[in-house]
Design a protein around this nucleic acid. Structure first.
Length: 250
DNA sequence: TCTTAATGCCC
DNA sequence: TGAGATGCG
DNA sequence: GGGCATTAAGACCGCATCTCA
């Protein structure tokens, strides 16, 4: 959301009150909990969980749940990632949910390698969860467009972090391991993006990228009944994405 | 992301 | 307290 | 030397932080 305090000022809580999702995952909160106003921490009908970066104003994720999760874990259990506040794991009745702000690789080669390492280190962890008979959802800002259809300017960005072959190969590997990009189950069409540069009026002209995903394990994909991108929702350089799951509880 | 200027390349 | 610069995306 | 392609640099937006009066 590019700063949760900024989007609260722009009406995040009114939007939440109108949409009432069962679970809301946000990334790039850019705040420690002691910097948050009381309105976002209470009185909206959600339990909130926060994992903040050590550095002020940087990174951070939060998960809002109507129903209290069975288990909550901050971080992946890997120090070099956890200090940046990128992962919240919550366990729910039918699935595990990873809310992740994947690293951005645009600053330099060190950060690009850090991003690639993150992909490589996450995959065996979630594979193991599936092997242990869990359904798993991995959502958030993946910071990589997988295919040319997923961004408006593929040719111009082949050497830009976010659409480089090495990054796209990581997503190929996820797919090879049975992970499913749920949006494409329901929407094969082009020009559907979830992020636009603030610069040069890119959003007005829909010059964007689809870099936010819900990936699920293959067998759980059958329980997904809808996935969408809500590009009419303003307030950030990203827009919300959604996943609807069949209710098996009765 | 886009414009501009500079560079490289082929005929 | 607020203008201006920096870091980051 | 003309035409065409690729490359490099700079301005561009927004949030949050820090420094300095």
């Amino acid at each position: 959301v590019n700063g949760v305090r900024a989007v609260v000022k722009k009406g995040l809580l009114d939007w939440l009150d109108h949409e009432r999702p069962d679970i809301l995952c946000i990334q790039e909160t850019k705040a420690h909990t002691d910097q948050l106003s009381s309105e976002i921490l209470q009185d909206h009908g959600y339990k909130t969980y926060w994992h903040s970066g050590e550095r002020r104003g940087y990174s951070g994720v939060a998960t809002f749940c109507k129903e209290e999760p069975l288990y909550v874990q901050e971080g992946l259990g890997i120090e070099k990632y956890d200090r940046e506040g990128r992962v919240l794991l919550t366990e729910h009745e039918d699935f595990l949910l990873y809310n992740i702000y994947f690293p951005n690789g645009q600053k330099d080669d060190v950060r690009l390698q850090y991003k690639l390492d993150f992909y490589d280190d996450l995959l065996p962890i979630i594979n193991e969860q599936v092997e242990s008979d869990n359904n798993v959802i991995v959502t958030g800002d993946w910071n990589t467009a997988h295919f040319p259809i997923d961004l408006a300017r593929p040719k111009e960005n082949i050497r830009t972090s976010g659409f480089m072959p090495v990054e796209r190969e990581r997503l190929d590997t996820y797919v090879d391991n049975g992970w499913v990009d749920t949006f494409r189950l329901f929407h094969p069409e082009p020009h559907r993006y979830s992020w636009w540069s603030y610069r040069m009026g890119a959003r007005d002209r829909n010059i964007g990228w689809r870099i936010d995903y819900f990936f699920v394990n293959g067998s759980f994909a059958e329980s997904c009944i809808d996935a969408d991108i809500h590009d009419d929702v303003m307030g950030s350089d990203h827009c919300p994405i959604s996943l609807s799951i069949e209710n098996n509880s009765s």
